[in-house]
Design a protein around this nucleic acid. Structure first.
Lengths: 128, 128
DNA sequence: GCCAATTTGTACGTATGTATT
DNA sequence: TAATACATACGTACAAATTGG
């Protein structure tokens, strides 16, 4: 969905919130769309896109890598893991057996995304 | 002095350093020049000026006030005071008598600038 | 190693809005 | 009201890093 140009909230703030939502609801896995793609999707200037992203970088949610793209920060992923700690413990105890059905659909998607990460940045409980 | 366009160091970084120097050596007292003035002095675009200032704001050195200008942060002034603590104690003990000649010229200038601040943000040792 | 495509970085310019004096 | 100063948003161009053919 596009941004609200009639809204008094600045476009770069609105876009920042959109991106943040997509990071936390799992629509963005590991890497977020390029600046070019965000421009085309939300009909805003590159300056505006960069302003939105910069805020999220300052908040430690995203990390930029010149020539590669903008990625979800490792610390952000660790935050997700923290919220899953109890479930993780259960999974360790059960060895990922039927009891795992107790975790929510959202959490299943999260684990799916975490497993896509390169092994060196993959959380211990998901290694091997 | 102007910036070095042949240098590989980005202009906004060079300008940031210039401003920072002028804050700490006392050429800027309380308020720094407007974006327009910095553009004219260093021959750079307003975007570049704003980028430099933004960094200093993020580092807590400057504070921006829409419609008024950009100011040296109170915390920055407190840092200055911290470096003068021993001298301050001496001054308290001596009641600002001849012994004060021991402080450096730079410190004298600093005190001069601090006294220009509005009373509500003036450090206690300078109130009276 | 080279080249082209992609992506972020730097720097410029312009216009209009909002806040303060 | 007018002038000043920062905020938002648009646009352009080229540089530098990375990747894949």
């Amino acid at each position: 969905m596009s941004l609200d140009y009639t809204n008094s909230i600045p476009l770069h703030v609105q876009l920042k919130q959109k991106i943040e939502q997509n990071v936390y609801n799992g629509r963005y896995a590991d890497k977020i769309p390029s600046e070019r793609e965000l421009m085309d999707e939300y009909y805003v200037n590159r300056s505006t896109v960069r302003q939105s992203i910069q805020q999220l970088v300052l908040e430690g949610i995203l990390v930029k890598k010149p020539g590669k793209g903008t990625f979800i920060a490792v610390s952000t992923i660790n935050d997700w893991l923290g919220s899953l700690s109890s479930t993780s413990e259960n999974m360790e105890k059960m060895g990922m057996t039927p009891g795992a059905k107790l975790i929510t659909l959202q959490e299943i998607e999260l684990f799916g995304r975490l497993k896509k990460l390169p092994s060196w940045k993959r959380p211990t409980i998901l290694k091997e």
